[in-house]
Measured scan of single mutants.
Amino acid sequence: LGPKYVGLWDFKSRTDEELSFRAGDVFHVARKEEQWWWATLLDEAGGAVAQGYVPHNYLAERE
């Protein structure tokens, strides 16, 4: 699936296409579209919880 990303700060969605998340949440990014990335929010087991657009500057690649 490629690298995983972690949320740096809490983010509250403003549209139906955006995905709310908390700092520390883990994502798989499917598409990078300039300022907004289409991402899947993952649970602790790595299963998909939700999908939506997230601001790229709120995520960091997980080491």
Score class of each variant (00 low, 15 high):
residue 1 L to I: 12
residue 2 G to C: 14
residue 2 G to I: 14
residue 2 G to N: 12
residue 2 G to P: 12
residue 2 G to D: 12
residue 3 P to V: 14
residue 3 P to T: 12
residue 3 P to D: 09
residue 5 Y to P: 00
residue 5 Y to I: 00
residue 5 Y to C: 06
residue 5 Y to S: 00
residue 5 Y to A: 01
residue 6 V to G: 01
residue 6 V to W: 07
residue 6 V to Y: 11
residue 6 V to D: 04
residue 6 V to S: 02
residue 6 V to A: 03
residue 7 G to P: 02
residue 7 G to Q: 02
residue 8 L to F: 02
residue 8 L to V: 07
residue 8 L to H: 03
residue 8 L to P: 01
residue 9 W to P: 01
residue 9 W to V: 08
residue 9 W to K: 11
residue 10 D to G: 04
residue 10 D to N: 07
residue 10 D to I: 08
residue 11 F to D: 03
residue 11 F to N: 02
residue 12 K to L: 13
residue 12 K to Y: 14
residue 12 K to C: 11
residue 13 S to V: 01
residue 13 S to M: 06
residue 13 S to C: 08
residue 14 R to I: 11
residue 15 T to Y: 08
residue 15 T to H: 11
residue 16 D to H: 11
residue 16 D to I: 08
residue 16 D to N: 13
residue 17 E to R: 13
residue 17 E to N: 14
residue 17 E to C: 14
residue 17 E to Q: 14
residue 17 E to M: 13
residue 18 E to L: 10
residue 18 E to Y: 12
residue 18 E to F: 12
residue 19 L to V: 06
residue 20 S to K: 02
residue 20 S to N: 05
residue 20 S to C: 06
residue 20 S to A: 05
residue 20 S to F: 02
residue 21 F to R: 00
residue 21 F to W: 02
residue 21 F to Y: 00
residue 21 F to P: 01
residue 21 F to Q: 00
residue 22 R to M: 11
residue 23 A to E: 07
residue 23 A to K: 14
residue 23 A to W: 06
residue 23 A to N: 04
residue 24 G to D: 03
residue 24 G to S: 02
residue 24 G to F: 04
residue 24 G to R: 00
residue 25 D to G: 04
residue 25 D to R: 01
residue 26 V to N: 07
residue 26 V to P: 03
residue 26 V to C: 08
residue 26 V to T: 12
residue 27 F to E: 00
residue 28 H to Y: 15
residue 28 H to K: 07
residue 28 H to E: 13
residue 29 V to G: 00
residue 29 V to Q: 01
residue 29 V to D: 01
residue 29 V to S: 00
residue 29 V to F: 02
residue 29 V to H: 01
residue 30 A to K: 11
residue 30 A to E: 15
residue 30 A to H: 15
residue 30 A to C: 11
residue 31 R to Y: 13
residue 32 K to P: 03
residue 32 K to T: 09
residue 32 K to D: 03
residue 33 E to H: 10
residue 33 E to T: 08
residue 34 E to Y: 09
residue 34 E to S: 13
residue 34 E to R: 10
residue 35 Q to W: 12
residue 35 Q to K: 14
residue 35 Q to S: 12
residue 35 Q to Y: 15
residue 35 Q to H: 15
residue 35 Q to F: 15
residue 36 W to Y: 12
residue 36 W to M: 14
residue 37 W to R: 00
residue 38 W to H: 03
residue 38 W to F: 13
residue 38 W to C: 07
residue 39 A to D: 00
residue 40 T to E: 09
residue 40 T to A: 06
residue 40 T to P: 00
residue 40 T to Y: 13
residue 40 T to C: 11
residue 40 T to M: 11
residue 40 T to R: 02
residue 40 T to V: 15
residue 41 L to D: 00
residue 41 L to V: 04
residue 41 L to Q: 02
residue 42 L to N: 01
residue 42 L to M: 06
residue 42 L to V: 06
residue 43 D to L: 07
residue 43 D to A: 03
residue 43 D to H: 03
residue 43 D to T: 05
residue 44 E to Q: 10
residue 44 E to Y: 06
residue 44 E to G: 09
residue 44 E to A: 11
residue 45 A to E: 12
residue 45 A to M: 13
residue 45 A to W: 14
residue 45 A to L: 12
residue 46 G to S: 05
residue 46 G to P: 03
residue 46 G to N: 06
residue 46 G to R: 03
residue 46 G to D: 08
residue 47 G to P: 02
residue 47 G to N: 15
residue 48 A to H: 09
residue 48 A to R: 08
residue 48 A to I: 14
residue 48 A to K: 08
residue 48 A to V: 12
residue 48 A to P: 12
residue 49 V to E: 04
residue 49 V to D: 03
residue 49 V to A: 06
residue 49 V to Y: 06
residue 50 A to I: 07
residue 50 A to V: 04
residue 51 Q to S: 15
residue 51 Q to H: 14
residue 52 G to A: 04
residue 52 G to T: 01
residue 53 Y to V: 02
residue 53 Y to T: 04
residue 54 V to Y: 03
residue 54 V to M: 01
residue 55 P to K: 05
residue 56 H to A: 15
residue 56 H to D: 06
residue 56 H to Y: 14
residue 56 H to N: 11
residue 57 N to A: 07
residue 57 N to P: 01
residue 57 N to H: 11
residue 57 N to M: 07
residue 57 N to R: 07
residue 57 N to G: 09
residue 57 N to D: 12
residue 57 N to F: 09
residue 58 Y to N: 03
residue 58 Y to S: 06
residue 59 L to V: 04
residue 59 L to C: 03
residue 59 L to T: 04
residue 60 A to Q: 13
residue 60 A to M: 13
residue 60 A to V: 14
residue 60 A to S: 10
residue 60 A to Y: 10
residue 61 E to D: 08
residue 61 E to G: 04
residue 61 E to K: 11
residue 62 R to S: 13
residue 62 R to I: 15
residue 63 E to G: 12
residue 63 E to L: 12
